[in-house]
């Protein structure tokens, strides 16, 4: 019974989310563009599917994955599990006790990004637009590796206590350098992938990890550190997607180079 009420609540909040968007779309369609829609039945069905799909998805996450994931983040960061004394103010020197935490950060960042619905949407579109040059899985894996690396590094930063802005500023510098050298077609897509990662699935689990880590280490600010992890999760995919494009370009060049030489041999 409780499951049904909480599902209805999720459905209601999804409706609240979709309703203003639908109003704007159809309002402009009929008042400004003054045109009928092609396949109105299908579009409407699409909206209904999105509505129910999102409600099921969020409900399932709340019921299954989030509680367990949050519990694990707490247990993994607890001093008893890590084998360090709770009073130690030397967390910075104990950083290597946290290896499981970094591995958890990496794998949870990777796997939640693969399941992120907005990233699936952007990947489908990029694949269509590029005529198949950008692979759906290629892009998703590139973004997921970026998030995984970002969150693992972010966890290390919380443990070691180094200031956030050093990382962010050097990250931006790397992004600027990569922008100069990577294929021009990928730049906009790479910047976009930074924004799509911090969404439905990733944020709650990553925030729980940040909270667990910083509340168990003296001198850390739980609120600021949790946000820091999310900032990392949106910075590193930009680098990994540009890196992915640079690598594919390099492979393509080497390949065509080889082929060009073959007839002469």
């Amino acid at each position: 019974m409780g499951g049904i009420t909480s599902f209805l609540q999720t459905l209601l909040s999804t409706v609240q989310d979709v309703l203003p968007i639908a109003t704007i779309l159809f309002g402009f369609q009929f008042i400004v563009l003054r045109k009928g829609i092609k396949n109105p039945g299908q579009i409407l069905l699409g909206f209904v599917l999105v509505l129910f799909g999102l409600a099921f998805f969020l409900q399932g996450l709340e019921q299954a994955l989030f509680p367990l994931g949050k519990l694990m983040a707490e247990q993994l960061t607890a001093p008893e599990f890590l084998g360090i004394s709770e009073t130690a103010n030397t967390a910075g020197e104990n950083w290597h006790h946290y290896l499981w935490v970094y591995l958890f950060a990496f794998t949870i960042g990777f796997s939640t990004t693969i399941a992120e619905p907005s990233l699936i949407a952007v990947a489908i579109k990029a694949n269509q637009v590029s005529g198949g040059a950008v692979g759906i899985w290629g892009l998703r894996i590139a973004v997921a590796i970026g998030v995984a690396f970002g969150i693992a590094l972010g966890a290390y930063r919380i443990v070691s206590g180094t200031p956030l802005h050093y990382y962010i500023i050097s990250g931006y510098i790397v992004v600027i350098i990569q922008t100069l050298y990577c294929p021009k077609q990928i730049i906009a897509l790479a910047y976009d992938s930074g924004g799509v990662t911090t969404s439905t699935v990733t944020v709650p689990l990553v925030a729980a990890l940040g909270l667990g880590l910083s509340s168990n280490i003296p001198g850390r600010n739980p609120l600021l550190d949790g946000f820091g992890l999310i900032a990392f999760a949106s910075l590193f995919p930009i680098m990994s997607v540009m890196g992915y494009a640079q690598l594919s370009e390099w492979f393509a060049k080497r390949h065509s180079h080889k082929q060009a030489h073959r007839p002469g041999e």
């Binding site: 579009i43 129910f52 099921f56 998805f57 949407a121 489908i124």
Partner: peptide
């Protein structure tokens, strides 16, 4: 949920 969402995306949100 993910299945319904992705399909709704393809037939509803993207085309409009």
């Amino acid at each position: 949920g993910l299945t319904l969402f992705v399909h709704g995306l393809k037939i509803g949100l993207f085309p409009i």
